[in-house]
Amino acid sequence: MYAQMVKSTGKGVKSREEMTEEERHFQDRVDADEKIEPKDWMPEGYRKTLIRQIAQHAHSEVVGQLPEGNWITRAPTLERKAILLAKVQDEAGHGLYLYCAAETLGISRDELTEKLLDGSMKYSSIFNYPTLNWADIGAVGWLVDGAAIMNQVPLQRTSYGPYSRAMIRICKEESFHQRQGYDIMMKMAKGTPEQKRMAQDAMNRFWYPALMMFGPSDKDSVHSAQSMAWKIKINTNDELRQKFVDQTVPQAEYLGLTIPDPDLKWNEETGHYDFSEPDWSEFYEVLKGNGPCNTERLEARRKAWDDGAWVRDGLMAHAEKRAARRTAAE
């Protein structure tokens, strides 16, 4: 998902006997669905894991502006341009809300940004794939946002108050994103032969990367078990992936698009679709920095940050001068 492979700290879930009294009290509150707030006591591992997870999610929103932003200046109509711009702007907003949530855990946004830029923090693998034709903008909205929503909706119930509130706001705003993507796909899939070709091409390139967004199977992972006990992860990766496939296949059929998986078929017994796993070696390569656009994405963010330094400093310096002048006048 937007936060992939986030490792929780510690060796696994502690039994109640192993917990200190503070830890037991904390776990009781989480179990009772009480929200944990910034000033409440929390285990150090909970705090650190949350910072990693929320920051990774925030970085993903901000880097995620780039592949879609790639088409703002080439949008086919004024209305499509406005919709896309509004959507990419929302991603910036979502990044902002999430950074603010992370900041309540005792780390600054600038520190988190530096960690993104020096490679010590990651963002979702999906944004390292290129957007090559206009239908990709449809596919990103439909498949990528669709996959993201699968994860974000349950996260509204996460145990950490500021994170939960950010997710509620994000989900509310996000609801138009997937629909606008599907709307583009409908136009393309029912358009000229070239448009249909673009739509299928987008489907071919985005299907497996979208499945990878959920991360590899984590049913045996101790990190996931801990995160689930803390309610900062609500479902397993496999559950969400299955749900996504089940939801998406009929939508693809409606568009008349072929999902690039010859083994995809409905399974009467399980009541779910069977499907092929993505190539996980590709996923690990992308995480290592070897995806098609890793270099460009980080370069673009680094350039924005470096080129913007004089602006941030300039406006800050002015604010300080003005405050000093006001004090002097009083």
Binding site: G93, L96, Y97, C100, E103, R109, R165, A166, R169, L315, M316, H318, A319, R322, A323
Partner: peptide, 18 residues
């Protein structure tokens, strides 16, 4: 929610936009 701004005036404008 929250945001960053150099001073109160800019914070209000940023809040309007965000």
């Amino acid at each position: 929610g929250s945001l960053h701004a150099p001073d109160a005036e800019m914070a209000i404008k940023n809040a309007r936009d965000v």
